[in-house]
């Protein structure tokens, strides 16, 4: 990927991200709904331009899925991205996407994100400047998984975590952040149109309200 001094415009990024192939057969159990190109572009452009947390940074993407956030982060200047997912089918799709985009700075790892916050995994901890994630919402049959993803993201990052959560869980997330001693801020409220991506959505389109949240470590080892 060529160095660009000027950051790509949001619309341009969104246009590129339209070409990211999405889940062939989304798995209900894993809440596999894709991050739309529009939402991914909005998130990443804000992370890059408002907070300068992508350009020349190392980034971890938890629940990488088909890779739209990792690909977009790389297009905005991330130097190295590690994408982690438990689903090997999603990783295969992601790998094809990376090939199509000719991106060589994103590595993929098949692992259970829930194990990553474990102190035994200390070699992964604090290795990334920034964590980005669109975690399972944890409101179906896997309550609490959103919190486990956030814990892992905080463990792996030195500076900041950017995540998406159902607006209905906002108080809970902010309370957890306060318990962990990190600063949390709702940056934007988004609407997710799940448009029949998962089969339990009986209506033709289901809009859900989602918060785009930024968590920042209070003492961070930021050097650049």
């Amino acid at each position: 990927m060529a160095n660009s001094v000027k950051v790509m415009k949001r619309k341009e990024l969104e246009a590129y991200l339209q070409d990211v192939e999405v889940f062939e057969n989304p798995k209900v159990k894993l809440e596999q709904y894709p991050t739309t190109p529009h939402i991914a572009a909005c998130m990443l452009h804000t992370i890059c331009c408002t907070y300068d947390d992508l350009t020349d940074k190392s980034v971890v993407d938890l629940g990488v899925g088909c890779g739209v956030l990792s690909i977009g982060a790389t297009m905005l200047g991330a130097r190295y991205v590690l994408g982690v997912d438990i689903d090997e089918d999603a990783l295969d799709t992601c790998s094809r996407n990376l090939q199509d985009f000719e991106i060589h700075t994103v590595d993929l790892l098949a692992a259970d994100v829930r194990h990553l916050a474990n102190p035994l995994n200390c070699h992964l901890h604090k290795r990334f400047d920034t964590a980005v994630l669109n975690p399972p919402f944890g409101t179906k049959h896997n309550q609490g998984i959103d919190i486990e993803f956030l814990k892992a993201a905080l463990a792996l990052s030195r500076h900041c975590v950017y995540s998406l959560h159902k607006t209905s869980t906002r108080e809970h997330i902010l309370k957890k952040a306060s318990d962990w001693g990190v600063e949390a801020k709702v940056i934007a409220e988004l609407r997710f149109d799940l448009a029949n991506t998962l089969k339990f959505h009986k209506k033709t389109a289901v809009d859900i309200e989602v918060d785009f949240i930024r968590l920042q470590h209070k003492t961070d080892g930021r050097t650049v």
Binding site: Y80, L82, D107, L109, H115, N118, L120, N121, C122, H123, L124, R127
Partner: peptide
């Protein structure tokens, strides 16, 4: 897999393994 990634991976969550690194 890049060696940078390898540098972060351990098998320490396996039962009975203490370090699992490198």
């Amino acid at each position: 897999m890049k060696l940078l990634t390898h540098n972060m991976l351990t098998s320490s969550v396996i039962k009975g393994v203490t370090k699992g690194f490198p």
